[in-house]
Amino acid sequence: MVETLKITDLHVATEGKPILRGVNLEIKRGEVHALMGPNGSGKSTLGYAIMGHPSYEVTHGSITLDGADVLSMEPNERARAGIFLAFQRPMSIPGVKMADFLRHAATNVRRPNRKEGEELIPMREFRKELNAKMDQLRMDKEFTRRYVNDGFSGGEMKRAEILQLAMLRPKFAILDETDSGLDVDAVRLASQSIADIGGKAMGILIITHHEHLLEHNRPDFTHVMLGGRIVETGGPELAIELHKQGYDRIRAAYPGAAADEAAMKDQAETVASH
């Protein structure tokens, strides 16, 4: 049976405010799903909820990975189970070299039962693999000697996320706006990179506003999120339509979700103005 990440009627709130209002989504390994939608519709929240961010409370629904209850797992257990989130805004960890961070990460993910303090992947073996991956992604070796995301440009951060994706080889990857802040060429390179590192072997959920990231990762499904729900699902042509024409048609077709979206936006603006 094909491995499956299954999200059922997921409701998520943060600081007591509902964001997701019943999301259903099933991703099989080997499939590419695009998730599109206006700002603030809940796309990033879905990514965080799948990874178990402590500020996002699942109030209803389930997430399973081949039937196993993902919601009962710690974020690190989810990573070790084969779920990966490429962050829209990755955090910096000053003083920790990219290579050391990745070596810990790769060891943990490949040996899910590893106890803390147990041995890491041997340095030589790890280096060799890391260098090969960096060659493939056309990245400068200097990169891994720098501190994790510390002083990285927007583009460097996104490339660092893709490098981590390549090294961790998850079963399922959520790419949260891996294209944001990049120019068209950089997005194309990122798109190409994801395909190169074997996107086909993963189930991928690409959260994006643009079609460029999908160029080399043609989606099998495109989902539109509005007001915390997936309101429409189509094929690759839907992504192209939304990119060209925006969300007016969607809002008109789903007035309930559009009203929720407007309410969420008001709320967010009220919070921001305080």
């Binding site: 990874m51 961010h53 402590p54 710690e74 974020p75 690190n76 989810r78 990573a79 070790r80 990966f84 989130l85 962050f87 990755p90 955090m91 910096s92 960890i93 961070f101 810990h104 990460a105 060891t107 943990n108 993910v109 803390e116 981590q164 961790l168």
Partner: peptide, 14 residues
């Protein structure tokens, strides 16, 4: 920061 590292498989303590 801690959440980010945990998403890469590190335990909280690690």
């Amino acid at each position: 920061q801690i959440f980010y590292a945990r998403c890469r498989g590190l335990t909280r303590k690690e």
